[in-house]
Simulated scan of single mutants.
Amino acid sequence: MAEQTAPPQPAAGPAPAAGPRTGKPDSAVVRDALGVGIAVGLSGFAFGVTSAGAGLTLLQTCVLSLLVFTGASQFALVGAIAAGGNPFAAAAGAFFLGIRNAFYGLRLSQLLALPRWLRPLAAHWVIDETTAVALAQPTRRQVRIGFTVTGLTLYVLWNLTTLLGALGAEAIGDTDAWGLDAAGPAVFLALLAPMLRTATERAAAGLAVVLGLGLLPVLPAGVPVLVAALAAPAVLWLKGRSLGGDGGTPAAGPATERTKGQDR
């Protein structure tokens, strides 16, 4: 009888292996997602104030948050308009800032594996914060939980605080004196900085900062953002030339990059 009860034990054996894949309970994923959604969602107030201070109407401000829903692009758009820039240049700068979300979507589509009918709706929530939370999860179930909770919390709070900010802009008075227009970019940089792990990524980010800030006094509002977007391809091109010109480095370079990618 004792030997007949032994076979069930191999079934219990794989249980420890499931632990590392699960990583943490779903409640921890929800807690982390809520933390990110609430913290970033509250900065919608700053956007509402900044947009109203730039001359946009309450309806225009709220529609931007409802339909665009990507903070960096929204701040770039209203910032360029407030500086007297051409609306088309401002829109182009906002567009190129938001194009990164398309690349996020390529990765998230594999991890989420959502039904076809749901993908267009989920695409609206593919932003920096939802991507960061989703990519930090070890299982598909938790990826979906993190993405959904972050997206829902952030979308509701961002739009609500945008409305409150736009309504309260008159009570605040001089919005420039508060420096609220820097809140959105500051949040974006805080999320981006920990992701710059390789020398190539740090070089591209540094060059983008130099181009953006250096050309700010020279070019019309909105255009420096477009020029700064060239930093990444420029760094990759220079890296390719350096690897191609060095005899022993090419084999070592990609291997190192692949190793770093696997560690992530």
Rank of each mutant, 00 (worst) to 15 (best):
A2P: 03
E3K: 06
P8M: 03
P10L: 10
P16R: 01
A18F: 01
A18E: 07
G23N: 03
P25W: 04
P25N: 08
D26A: 14
V36F: 12
G37W: 12
A39N: 06
G41L: 06
S43W: 01
G44S: 07
A46L: 00
F47Y: 12
T50V: 00
S51Q: 01
G53I: 01
G53S: 14
G55Y: 02
T57Y: 08
L59P: 02
C62E: 13
S65G: 15
V68S: 12
G71V: 00
A72N: 08
Q74W: 04
A76Y: 02
L77Q: 02
L77D: 05
L77R: 01
L77K: 01
V78G: 02
G79E: 03
I81R: 03
A82W: 01
G84I: 10
N86S: 15
N86P: 04
A89W: 15
A91R: 02
A92L: 15
F95N: 04
F96C: 13
N101G: 09
G105T: 10
G105H: 11
L108R: 09
S109P: 03
Q110D: 08
L111I: 11
A113G: 09
P115T: 10
R116W: 05
L118P: 02
A122M: 10
A122S: 13
V126C: 12
I127W: 05
I127G: 08
I127Q: 04
A132H: 06
L135W: 06
T139H: 00
Q142L: 03
T153H: 09
T153A: 15
Y155Q: 05
L157W: 09
L167Y: 09
G168S: 14
D174F: 10
T175V: 14
T175C: 02
T175W: 15
D176W: 01
W178Y: 14
D181L: 02
D181E: 14
A183Y: 00
G184N: 02
A186N: 04
A186Y: 03
V187Y: 04
V187S: 05
F188S: 05
L189N: 03
L189Q: 02
A190P: 06
R197T: 13
A203V: 05
A205P: 06
G206P: 07
A208D: 09
V209S: 06
V210R: 05
V210I: 15
L213D: 08
G214L: 10
L215F: 13
L215V: 10
P217A: 11
L219C: 08
P220Q: 10
P220L: 07
A221R: 07
G222E: 09
G222A: 08
P224Y: 10
V225P: 04
V227K: 06
L230W: 03
A231Q: 08
A231S: 14
P233M: 08
P233F: 11
W237P: 02
K239R: 14
R241P: 04
G244H: 11
D246M: 06
G247R: 13
G248P: 13
A251Y: 11
R264N: 08
